[in-house]
């Protein structure tokens, strides 16, 4: 089975407001508000370069952010992607 490819809608479909420690995202397509913590906004930014599978996405995140090499990093990324997909902020190609 090939890895899932993820797509995020362009940034102008979202209004992001940073509060202390969390970010509010108003998603214009659904009219829904999401309250997210890092790294969700960073994932959406990284997908802004174009659709990607999880591995490519992780490479983009490493390039732009300081990420420690921890156990379970890719599992954590998969979990965040699943949350973003359920919220409708990310979809599969």
């Amino acid at each position: 089975m090939t890895a899932a490819i993820y797509i995020a809608d362009p940034p102008d479909t979202r209004r992001l407001i940073a509060l202390d420690g969390v970010a509010l995202i108003f998603h214009r397509l659904s009219g829904q508000t999401h309250i997210v913590a890092p790294p969700a906004p960073e994932i959406l930014d990284a997908l802004g370069e174009g659709e990607a599978d999880a591995e490519t996405l992780l490479a983009r995140l490493r390039r732009d952010h300081e990420i420690a090499d921890e156990e379970g990093l890719s599992e954590a990324l998969d979990a965040r992607l699943a949350e973003l997909e359920a919220a409708g902020l990310v979809r599969r190609a």
């Binding site: 509060l19 202390d20 420690g21 969390v22 509010l24 508000t33 309250i35």
Partner: peptide
Amino acid sequence: VGQGEAFVRLT
């Protein structure tokens, strides 16, 4: 009260 918590409670 943190801003995030206040926002959620007001919604």
